[in-house]
Design a protein around this nucleic acid. Sequence first.
DNA 1: CACTCTCGTAACATATAGCGTTGCATGAGA
DNA 2: TCTCATGCAACGCTATATGTTACGAGAGTG
Lengths: 154, 154
Amino acid sequence: MRRDSRLSGVLHVLLHMTEQPGPITSDALARAMNTNPVVVRRIMGGLRDRGLVHSEKGHGGGWMLACDLAAVTLRDVYDALGEPALLAMGNRTEAPDCLVEQTVNAALGETFDEAEALLLRRFEQISLAALCEVFHARLAERGGSLALETTHAA
Amino acid sequence: MRRDSRLSGVLHVLLHMTEQPGPITSDALARAMNTNPVVVRRIMGGLRDRGLVHSEKGHGGGWMLACDLAAVTLRDVYDALGEPALLAMGNRTEAPDCLVEQTVNAALGETFDEAEALLLRRFEQISLAALCEVFHARLAERGGSLALETTHAA
DNA sequence: CACTCTCGTAACATATAGCGTTGCATGAGA
DNA sequence: TCTCATGCAACGCTATATGTTACGAGAGTG
């Protein structure tokens, strides 16, 4: 299967939203990500249910941030996506009768658990506010516009 | 995508081979793994090309170990499988123009790289001989047979 | 009220990758 | 010559991320 890029995608969207005061429509976000509005709504749905963002229908509607950027980490966003699989590999069988396979599972499982724990720990260490800061540092360093419409030409 | 279990599977096979003096057929290995002989040959092909195992056709043929168990690590086996993807997630775009996405990619990419490096490092730290040792320790502790035919009832 | 905008959601299509299965060719031993 | 076993191509199946279309519901505008 293709590699899951939902976390990457939703963070892209969230970071753009921090740079824009008003609500942004799924359509505008979809254009920025070269994808479809429905895909945007799909990945944003989980974040809405968790109260990270808020959506409004009708004229002037769209998506708005609804959380404290300093208090929300990538882990929260990851959870809001439904905690998709982190590793592409896994043990063949969960609870095998075979002692040989139990040995293999134990060794591999420990390694896999370590890697997953590392990822989640790193996610918890990065807040949306921190991402914003890094972005602004890059912006100041390299110059350029911060508007969604400019960075993503229509 | 389904979670890749080739590493888990091939290690199971290799460990069984260390416990058996003569060659083992793909058919016997497939029965032990509740799968198809062709699947066994497929994942073993890479290991054969690297000289980790040797295959013989005809009567009395099958698979044999062809390496120093203490010198071969899980990393070697992983490489022999063709270095399949370790992580189920990735960045949406490799080299985006958007400064926002560059920021997201940098943060996530660093985390992903760390996790991949951890996995490979752990793989390098575990030799086939070490797995064998753990297996024999478990065997002595819990008792039981070590024959493929017994642990995997036909 | 009619119209337009936007989200919410179902339904279906597409692409990829692991896995299973069949068939046949090839080489080795009985 | 027959049987056993690998080598390999060619399918089909399944799961999942992603793309697309269609329609309904709510919210603002004229």
